[in-house]
Write a protein that binds this DNA or RNA. Structure first.
Lengths: 237, 237
DNA sequence: CGGAGTATTGATCCCATTCAAGAACTGTGG
DNA sequence: CCACAGTTCTTGAATGGGATCAATACTCCG
């Protein structure tokens, strides 16, 4: 049985026993956080890197008048900015969406892992590049698509990412988001999120209750979203 | 007299003579492109990395129905995805906005530079992290702000980035964008871009003709945009 | 000079917001 | 176990930011 981190990196490269040992070593300092806790605050100096083990976290930027944009989700197996220690301060905050476990990894540990295996090194780069690619995709969704399409797209993405790390039960997965948070992700008010969800429900595309999302018609949802998974870079080179 | 690339990296770290020589070495294979040419197309395998020397390029994603989102601008001194060779295919295209000069850098050259100077290595990481940070900022602008504020923000950003590399003449700089391209950047139709520009002109915030933007009241523009340059990570560590 | 791209302007429409109020869930303490 | 408070969700009505449609200028360039 492999961990989400191993599963995720295996989407990109083959890992040997040594690599797996390195990854396990990175995940020795496990932290437990409750929903609402911050892993790191905006403007704080980055002290360590996190690897998500269980539960969800989210990246966010706050605006002066109390608005908030969620700029990314960290799912189990995600590596949170391997090289962030290069920066003086965080340009965004990262908070826990649900109770979660993550591994805190020091700069030196990252550098050591980076230097000890070329596959790990490339895996860390890959992880950063995928994060950036997801941002471009989200930007495109916000800039060019309607609410209905944007929502379809984020559901397709999260479903696929959860599937990859073995955390989706076929067409169903844990989605620990309120309608408010979903709105801050795709640039909608909670009211409109609610109406869009209802439209999807009425069209038998999804079911969403008790923090679980069931995708009833993935093909149709992908069509609506014009979802193409290339931007997640899951093919091995 | 320093190059835009040196100026830009100097925002982050001190470069010694050796570092400057390495950078000069990276820029030996200079390419000239005309406006409209693609540096690289979406889905193409990345063959090399580019360093912008003169002129502007832009990153874009195309949608099936002919819509387009511009996801970033490459100004002189910008390094275009130093580690992109890790990926199998590009998730977006990069095109020339104006006639431009860029240096084509091979994977091996990047790795050699990366290994030969820790400051260069950190500079490359920094460059990638800033690109990602800019994407988060753009996403936030698209998701949370009105047209007028979004436009003020992109103007503040581009003005500052041009200033850093020594290409702004005080409050004025070359901005080789059509209203259509500006619209594809901030998620507006050309018609609305036009109206928003006129509003800014009428309020004596800017002048914009002949592909030159003059910022008449930078403080007011920053206020409108709630512009805070932290996300560009210009402080040295 | 002609044609294509670019900028401008007006009229109308619509997607999403805002405002407001009520219902359904949480979780907590007595 | 219930009462109660605080989120979260839901629904309706009115409003508005920006899109769409359409027509007219302007600019650049071969």
């Amino acid at each position: 049985m492999s961990t989400p981190l191993e599963r995720r990196l295996s989407c990109f490269t083959d890992l040997d026993e040594n690599d797996r040992a390195i990854l396990t070593g990175l995940c020795s300092d496990v932290r437990t956080l409750s929903a609402e806790d911050d892993l790191i605050e905006e403007s704080a100096p980055p002290k360590q890197v996190f690897i998500q083990l269980e539960g969800w976290a989210f990246r966010y930027k706050l605006l002066p008048e109390g608005k908030r944009q969620i700029t990314g989700y960290l799912l189990p197996g995600d590596i949170c900015d391997p090289f962030v220690f290069v920066l003086k301060r965080m340009d965004h905050g990262i908070g826990a969406l649900s109770d979660l476990k993550c591994a805190a990894v020091s700069k030196d540990q990252i550098l050591e892992a980076f230097n000890s295996s070329p596959r790990i090194a490339r895996g860390l780069w890959w992880s950063s590049l995928v994060d950036e690619s997801i941002l471009r995709q989200w930007l495109t969704n916000l800039g060019q698509r309607f609410a209905y399409e944007r929502m379809a797209h984020i559901f397709c993405e999260l479903w696929l990412r959860m599937t990859i790390v073995g955390l989706a039960d076929e067409d169903e997965f844990h989605l620990p988001l309120t309608q408010n948070q979903l709105g801050d992700t795709i640039g909608l008010t909670p009211v409109h999120v609610n109406r869009t969800l209802q439209r999807m429900r009425s069209e038998s595309l999804i079911e969403f209750e008790q923090r679980r999302l069931k995708i009833c018609d993935i093909d149709k949802l992908k069509d609506i979203a014009e979802f193409n998974s290339d931007y997640l870079h899951l093919e091995r080179r």
